[in-house]
Nucleic acid binder design. Structure first.
Lengths: 125, 125
DNA sequence: ATAATAACGATAATCATTACTAGTTAGGTG
DNA sequence: CACCTAACTAGTAATGATTATCGTTATTAT
């Protein structure tokens, strides 16, 4: 069963008050302004449980955990959530998409990455 | 000017001999079989320079470096390569895409992530 | 109010990656 | 061919994000 805590409530409120997509560390700094003794571990723990409950969304971004490919043309990938293997996907790359986003946002869009997730054939049983 | 080394050549050959998308550590283990004294740093260094030369492709995957979102419906993101900020993108989510990939691969596709990259308005000058 | 235990703060551990440093080697020049 | 120098190497320390541990605190059902 779940208990309430002012730390958890502060984290969720701060997250909902911003339109940016903050990192755990940024959230930690904000929470510290009202609860100076809060621990970074507490922020991570609560973000994790709220994510599991579907209350918030975690976006994993590029950073470390790289994988390498011997040929260097743009293509999409599928990653198996169970075994972690990565497969090439044959869907054509939609360059028009970049243009649409560019005109609607005013950003300079250089490319996009499309990553499928799920279970590969071996891991479906 | 560039010099050749058997380490660099082994790394590239191993990468081209596999259809999987190996991690740096996996490549390191393979190279060790023929050059037992090779260092993990050497593998990373060569992967980095080959990536910069466009010889190989680096795919950055989810891992750490997470960002969080207060609302939890599926939408796409744009990340600025200069300031690192993340913006929501209004393009509709194409669920049909998952089905197409599922039928063509036999995988169980639960979702996809679409990430645009480039420069936001503030960073174009 | 009390007892059970979820959640906490502090800190150590982990994991992928990068930085540093002293020694080695490729390859152009005399 | 011998030499020189900068590129490359192995080994190791450092970094940065995240997770685990552990003794303490505090929420909530009884």
């Amino acid at each position: 069963m779940h208990r309430r805590s002012k730390q958890k409530e502060a984290i969720l409120r701060i997250l909902r008050e911003t339109t940016s997509h903050p990192t755990a560390d940024w959230i930690y700094e904000q929470v510290r302004k009202e609860i100076p003794t809060v621990s970074l571990g507490t922020v991570y723990r609560n973000l994790k449980t709220m994510k599991e409950q579907g209350v918030i969304l975690e976006m994993e971004f590029s950073g470390n955990l790289s994988r390498f490919d011997g040929n260097s043309d743009n293509h999409h990938h599928f990653r198996c959530d169970n075994c972690g293997r990565v497969f090439d996907i044959d869907e054509p790359v939609d360059n028009e998409l970049d243009e649409r986003v560019a005109t609607s946002t005013g950003f300079l869009v250089s490319y996009h990455r499309l990553e499928f997730r799920g279970l590969c054939i071996d891991c479906q049983h």
